[in-house]
Structure formats: structure tokens, C-alpha cells
Amino acid sequence: FYGPEELKRGSIIDAMTWQFGRVATIFDLPTFGESPVKADKPIAVIRPATVRKEWANPARNPDPKYIAAAARKLRKNFYVVSLADLEAGEEWLVGETPEADLYLHAGELSLTQTLALVEHAAVVVSGVGWALPVAICYQTPVFIIQGGCGAHNAPHIVTDPGMDLSRVGWAQPDEYCMCASMVHDCSKHISGFNKKIKGWLNEIVQ
């Protein structure tokens, strides 16, 4: 377990270290076979902005328009897969649906298939969430578009110095909000977003 009190003292990995009494020295995951998605182009995985009932945290989400902009750009050179597990009343999309070549929005993939998809993807674009540590463990390039609630979601909270972050890109709001509220109306404007993701793609992915 970790919560607000633990994150006042350190990162998520710090909190897990205190809980388990062991320091992580390797950040990896097992392989689960081939990608469940086949395409003629390199695969880009997009995580749309969603809110789920049991852990409603709209403040953490990026402005959905930036995910949509990233998806449009990626479709020029990649086969874009939009990945979510939506269910009425349980988890729902926020903002416009990003452009994609394939929508897997109804939990079509199992956990291990999801991991295999990320492992073999050319790039992942997401807000803060599970996609970040999974991509780091598989050394898959990942671009994180940040929203707010920085006390729980800032880069130094959701990563660890022992991780290989050389393939991680960040787009952070101009006035990044370090609040701890999951429902705060955080400022999420990111100046020059298209330039940021283009530069990262050119340097790290393409």
C-alpha cells in the first residue's frame, strides 16, 4: 500500500521499498510472447484520458486535446492502437476520442496480452498511469503527457533514479500544479506541445 502520507516522504518506489523492506535493483517484466496486434507499420499505443469510478482522479489526466494531437501525428508513420477498458458507469472516456487505426476500448486484451502489446510497441503515449512503469520495464519508448495533482504524479514521484529513463519523454503543463487533490481544476496548458512530441520522436523513436 501507498497513499498521500507516503508520497509526502518520497516516491512510489520509495513507498514500496518501505513496505517490502527490500530495495529494487532491476526494473523489468517477463515476456509474454508476441504482440497480439499485427500491422504493416510500427505500432504506437495510445492511452486515452479516462476516469474510473472507484478511483476518480480527473485532476491527474492531461488535457485530452494533447492525446488527440499526439494520435494524429503518430498515424502518419505508425499503426495507432487506442487502448482502454471502458464500461458504462465504471470507466469512461474524457474529451474527444483520439484518432486510431484500431480501438481496443472494451477490455479485449488480457493482462498478459496488454503487456505483450507494450513490450513490442515502437512507442507508447499516455498520461501518468500503469503504462509508464510497464514501458520503462520493457525499455519501450514512452511519452507521458502530464495533467495535474503533481504531489502524487510528478516525474520524481512516479519514477525512480534506478530506472532507465533514457526513453521517457515528458510534456508538462506550463504551470504544473503540485496539489494533492484528485478533483482540483489544475492548469493543464502545455505551450508548444506539437514541437515537444515531434522533437522527442525524432530523437528517441524515429
Rank of each mutant, 00 (worst) to 15 (best):
F1Q: 13
F1W: 14
E5D: 15
L7M: 12
L7Y: 11
R9P: 02
S11V: 07
I12C: 03
F20R: 14
V23Y: 08
A24N: 12
A24V: 10
A24L: 14
D28N: 14
L29S: 08
T31L: 12
F32S: 04
E34A: 15
E34V: 13
K41M: 12
V45L: 10
V45N: 04
T50L: 07
W55T: 13
N57Y: 05
D63C: 08
Y66F: 13
I67L: 08
A68L: 09
R75Q: 11
K76S: 12
K76D: 13
N77F: 05
N77C: 03
V81Y: 07
S82F: 03
L86V: 09
G89K: 11
E90K: 15
L93S: 02
G95C: 07
E96H: 07
P98W: 00
P98V: 00
A100D: 02
L102W: 06
Y103L: 10
H105E: 10
G107K: 13
Q113G: 11
L117G: 02
V118A: 05
E119A: 13
A121P: 05
V125N: 01
S126Q: 08
S126Y: 04
V128I: 15
V128Q: 07
G129A: 08
G129D: 02
A131Q: 08
L132C: 06
P133C: 06
V134R: 02
C137A: 15
C137N: 09
Y138S: 03
Q139S: 14
T140C: 07
P141V: 10
Q146E: 13
G148N: 04
G150K: 03
N153L: 09
P155F: 07
T159C: 09
D160F: 06
P161Y: 09
G162S: 12
G162R: 14
L165Q: 09
W170C: 01
P173N: 05
P173M: 07
D174G: 05
E175C: 13
C179S: 14
A180I: 02
A180T: 09
A180V: 01
S181C: 11
V183P: 00
H184C: 14
D185M: 10
C186A: 14
K188Y: 01
K188P: 03
I190K: 00
I190C: 02
S191I: 06
N194M: 07
N194D: 15
K195Q: 15
K195Y: 04
K195L: 11
L201T: 03
Q206E: 14
